[in-house]
Design a protein around this nucleic acid. Structure first.
Length: 509
RNA sequence: GGCCCGUUCGUCUAGGGGUUAGGACGCAGGAUUUUCAUUCCUGUAACACGGGUUCGAUUCCCGUACGGGCUACCA
């Protein structure tokens, strides 16, 4: 039987980066085993449905390259893949469970349950408490019939029989044993006719012939209920295998990573930006921060999984080859943003210049900068060793696109002397007349000139850099000169002494 | 509170009854680069604690502590 796995997020808002990792592990597992990766949308809670969330999920998966083989927006023979579109299925299955004696009707109002919780400490709806409540287990059959026929609101609950052992075999954690006496009678079908996660999950996994359920650790406790459901339906022979992933924790402090941590720590915790009416609920993402999708994937892959060995950089293909559920760690992993940045830097360094140029083209355009690919490729070549994020190319290297806006005044004060004005002007002349406008020969000529003038390179070269870029940080000066071009380089050399002289007294004063 | 899961450098992790406990990020220092960065080298730092089992436990077992999750007509 071929492997079929699903990623089943709820469209309740932006997809958390942890969700992307869950999708990734499912994807890797599917591809590793020649299986099928399915996207199922679990929108059974109408109250929490957020418009746009479904598109966000799909766009996120596409961005990082986790393309489902089946699912909402991707076709497939097991659809529909959106649970709200499958609503009609669940009632029938819930009813079947009632008929088999594994579930029952309950008529307790939310108020009645609230009262029970108030009056009884640690109240749970289970085999002990259900006898004192309004359900088909205690009400006479004709009374139940009457209420049902009268259209009274009801729900269907799982009837958990006490005294049973429920072993759960987890691919990551081994065998976990639960006692049914400690389980509550979970709601399976809600008053609005929609199933809860538990019912929908089991029914859909069964109908979609899911073989492996790879999901977050928060689902481990309810897996006992899920096993009971498989038993109740008589589907134990095709029950999927489970693997519960460790959670991603906050960078510092206690608890799992939350969406608020992004703003709190100044880092993205979502793949894409999310815009909400309320700025408080709007978030930045990895993409808009300037992460490459490959770097994002590589970082996420190693957050809670490692194949052994010393390799850190993996292509998607290598991840697929190396992946195995057994190597997923059991403990939660802190979100390490420094490491994420390192991955991005590495990927930028090793990416093809033309590819990077494509990436920064929209960034250059949005700033009104020159954005033709040949030019951007040159810029990329100069900057790729010194940036962390994509926007750094145009933000840090802005002076390659247009005039210098900020001068390092501290440096000017240290290096500038009005007497050098003629030197810079002479340099401008050399630049204009250089027979070969290439970095090595330019450097050669300039250095010869400096020596001939009886000056030291350390006196003039920093000024050259300041004139061209305004800052001491950046690519090799002569490389910059070539990208800037003959005319622009000469202009900056001739005009900068004016700025320098103007700045000097301000600083001195 | 109850149930369940977990615990190797600050972080991500490798390892596994006898190892100088390995790598990476970060940090610190050095070399190269008359800038910055890159690159290279060096350093820094860990088996939570207490009992067992064993000739020997970081590794296996139990307990404790700590961390995490669940405990909704949310997923």
């Amino acid at each position: 039987m071929s492997v079929r796995v699903r990623f089943a997020p709820s469209p309740t808002g932006a997809l958390h980066i942890g969700g992307v990792r869950t999708a990734l592990y499912n994807y890797l597992f599917a591809k590793k085993n020649g299986g099928t990766f399915i996207l199922r949308i679990e929108d059974t809670d109408q109250n929490r449905y957020v418009p746009g969330a479904e598109d966000y999920i799909i766009e996120s998966l596409k961005w990082v390259g986790l393309i489902p083989d089946e699912g909402v927006g991707f076709g497939g023979d097991y659809g529909p893949y959106r649970q709200s579109d499958r609503k009609h299925l669940y009632g029938k299955f819930a009813q079947e469970l009632v008929d088999r004696g594994h579930a029952y009707y309950a008529f307790d109002t939310p108020e009645a349950l609230e009262n029970a919780r108030q009056s009884t400490e640690n109240f749970t709806y289970n085999f002990q408490t259900r006898t004192g409540l309004q359900n088909s287990l205690v009400l006479p059959p004709d009374e139940v019939r009457r209420r049902l026929d009268a259209g009274e609101p009801y729900i269907i609950r799982l009837k958990v029989e006490p005294g049973q052992e429920i072993p759960v075999r987890d691919l990551i954690r081994g065998d976990v044993l639960f006692q049914s006496s400690e389980l509550d009678d979970k709601v399976l079908l809600k008053t609005d006719g929609m199933p809860t996660y538990h019912l929908a999950n089991i029914v859909d996994d069964h109908l979609m012939e899911i073989t492996h359920v790879i999901r977050g650790e928060e689902w481990l406790p309810s897996t006992a209920h899920h096993v009971l459901l498989y038993r109740g339906f008589g589907w134990t022979d095709t029950m999927p295998q489970f693997a519960h992933l460790p959670l991603i924790l906050k960078p510092v402090g206690n608890g799992k990573l939350s969406k608020r941590d992004g703003a709190k720590f100044g880092m993205p915790v979502f793949p894409l930006p999310w815009a909400a009416e309320n700025p408080e609920d709007s978030f930045t993402g990895f993409r808009d921060t300037g992460f490459l999708p490959e770097a994002t994937i590589n970082f996420l892959a190693l957050l809670g999984w490692h194949p052994g060995g010393d390799q850190e950089i993996f292509t998607m293909e290598e991840l697929i080859q190396a992946f195995s559920v057994e190597h997923i760690s059991k403990s939660g992993a802190r979100f390490d943003y420094e490491k994420a940045k390192w991955f991005n830097q590495r990927y930028i360094q090793t990416s093809d210049n033309a590819v990077l140029a494509e990436h920064i083209r929209p960034l250059a355009e949005s700033r009104g900068f020159r954005a033709d690919l040949p030019f951007l490729t040159e810029v990329v070549a100069l900057m790729k060793e010194r940036v962390t994020f994509l926007p750094d190319f145009v933000d840090q290297g802005y002076y390659l696109f247009g005039p210098v806006k900020i001068y390092d005044e501290e440096m000017i004060r240290k290096k500038w002397n009005p007497a050098f004005q003629t030197t810079l002007e002479a340099l401008a002349g050399i630049i204009l007349q250089a027979q070969s406008f290439e970095a090595p020969s330019l450097e050669e000529q300039v250095k010869q000139f400096i020596a001939a003038e009886g000056l030291k390179p350390g006196e003039i070269l920093p000024l050259l850099r300041l004139a061209l870029a305004g800052t001491m940080k950046g690519p090799a000066v002569f490389d910059m000169a070539v990208v800037l071009g003959r005319e622009e380089t000469a202009r900056r050399l001739r005009e900068s002494p004016g700025y320098f002289n103007r700045i000097m007294p301000v600083i001195a004063g």
